[in-house]
Design a protein around this nucleic acid. Structure first.
Lengths: 340, 340
DNA sequence: CATTGGCACTCGCACGAAACGAGTGCCAGA
DNA sequence: TCTGGCACTCGTTTCGTGCGAGTGCCAATG
């Protein structure tokens, strides 16, 4: 009972602080929420909440501000995702339906997400690791210069140039292409890379170096985790809304955003299957992002999370709204990948 | 003679202001430069320069600050590009030599440029419009689903999916592929798109719808100017060095940076062939970028400017150094495209 | 005519004192 | 357990003052 009210007070503090960006005092609280008790009572509750580490005062005789722990409790127990509005739904649909290819889906998603949440949006390109090979194409650009194209089930296309010491004629090329496709089509790429090694051995000895070069390039493309590291970032202009603490807050953040590796680590913690993960403040190992939260979730066709998408924002953010938006976008994107 | 000294004074003002970020007074000027005259003389010169609109004082009894017009004069007449250091040269070479494909070249360039200049770097992807068709590949993914791959001389690869109402068998496909390649290989894409229209007519009537679909997709891919609009942006963290005037300066800038269209317009003004173009402050039509300069130049294989690259920074920047860096990077990238 | 030293003047800014007020903690009473 | 009252704290705002960098002008000089 009393405990319940205390949580209500915490919730109210979080809500007010998020919207006003200012420490919130007992008076303001009872004014703006129907708590049914007097400021003094609220003050007592606040004292307890502070005791327990959910809120602090920036300095004596100022209002209270939620701590990371406070946000955590708020997110875990005091929040029901507010359903997104019909208008937002329409926006999402119309935004994403126009996408023509995978790149476009990612680009649009990132823009959409940043507009919806008014935060910095991050969308990871679908990983190679769990996709299957749809087709491999080998094309001669000139006698001893080949273009190898690897097409994956996610719609991703990787291409590589291969220079050959001695060229291959058209028949040899066709033969190689057939062998490769027979070996790998439909396989997930880890398996495909394995099988490829056998292909070289089957090729007539005089063409083996050439085949080896092609295969090596393919294997390299398949295991190339550089492409796993690709992310799209959008909405950095929203960083300006962070307000104070410019050089200490935004600079490292901008740097982190360019360090895509860090972003991937952050996103990597996210769960899949409709669960939206929230990392609050210093909970991760990245001190430079201590006043920053990450809201992320997995996405991919058929509920297998091929990649992650989410937003980065100040700890002081509208969690319910943001989480709902992230989830909604992830669902839509997943659906689109399903169709393709 | 007197005129010469006045220009020397302007140059000194620009240099000092760029390095100190503070309005510069007559005393400081004679101290830090060997002008060989007294502060009083400098004051007279400054009065004239102000009269002519090259400098202003932010407020009475403060030092002088260059105006856009002042920077213009400085850039046009008072500057010799300072040659980049050997260390920088090595950095450029080692940075770009590791690039594996076009995307990678662009990504690396943008990072390199931002590190070199400590500004926000922008690199446009090579345009389609002036490139030639190296090869077209048509691959059956399933009976009535084709993948069309368009490979251009710049190394750019565009791919599109085509759904067919009625499928094509392998022979028909090979025939179509041959016809298409015969028609377009080596042509610049505008011409190629034209020739393609004839291909459909030559195809046996029963396969004409299918061929038409493929051709239409190719034409669409060739004339798709969406891909012309691609740019890579890097080094936004350097924005923090802009100092004061945060919300009024950086916010619109960040927004502009995300508006790739605007960037392209800005870059579009740039000349080619070794000339580095500088747009200073409000010279363009973009008021929100009034305290911003753009330093850009064209690049591309064989000195034809396929695209543009450059940096965006505060009007108060080190023009000689920045221009040299931009030019150096453009040359290296051009050389790499030449080799490829 | 260009240059120079001298001098009065301007004005932004840093500094400090004082008033303000939001918010707290505690206590006594219902 | 809740409430109203009250003294206290302390960050923020406001205002006035003094300082000093820098200017413009002038009369003198080469």
């Amino acid at each position: 009972m009393v405990e319940d009210r205390r949580l209500a007070v915490l919730r109210a503090i979080v809500q007010d602080y998020v919207s006003t960006e200012e420490p919130v005092g007992s008076k303001a609280l009872v004014d703006r929420h129907q708590l049914g008790v007097s400021p003094a009572t609220v003050r007592n509750d606040m004292a307890v909440l502070e005791e327990e580490g959910f809120i602090t005062q920036p300095h004596t005789s100022a209002g209270r501000v939620p701590t990371d722990k406070g946000y955590r409790l708020f997110v875990d127990r005091l929040t029901t995702l507010k359903p997104i509005s019909a208008a937002e739904k329409r926006a999402i649909a119309s935004f994403l339906d126009g996408a023509v290819d995978l790149d476009d889906v990612v680009t649009r998603s990132v823009r959409l997400l940043s507009q919806l949440t008014r935060q910095v949006a991050v969308v990871q390109y679908p990983t190679l690791s769990r996709s299957t090979v749809r087709h491999v194409e080998v094309v001669a650009l000139s006698p001893n210069r080949l273009l190898v194209v690897l097409i994956l089930s996610t719609g991703r296309v990787e291409q590589r140039l291969v220079e050959l010491a001695v060229g291959l004629d058209d028949d040899a090329l066709a033969d190689l292409r057939t062998r490769i496709n027979r070996a790998v089509t439909g396989e997930i790429i880890a398996e495909a890379a394995d099988r490829l090694s056998k292909v070289t051995a089957e090729v007539p000895i005089e063409r083996r170096t050439a085949a080896g070069a092609v295969v090596a390039t393919l294997v390299e493309a398949m295991s190339d985790h550089r492409s796993d590291e690709r992310v799209a970032v959008g909405g950095t202009a929203n960083l300006t809304r962070f307000g104070e603490g410019f050089d200490t807050t935004i600079r490292p953040l901008l740097e982190a955003l360019e360090e895509h590796v860090v972003l991937l680590k952050l996103l990597g913690e996210a769960g899949s299957g409709g669960t939206v993960t929230v990392r609050i403040g210093g909970e991760g190992p990245y001190q430079e992002l201590s006043s920053t939260s990450v809201v992320a979730t997995g996405y991919g066709p058929g509920d297998q999370a091929l990649a992650t998408l989410g937003i980065v924002g100040p700890t002081r953010m509208d969690y319910p709204g943001t989480m709902a938006a992230v989830r909604a976008v992830a669902r839509y994107v997943s659906r689109i990948l399903d169709e393709a």
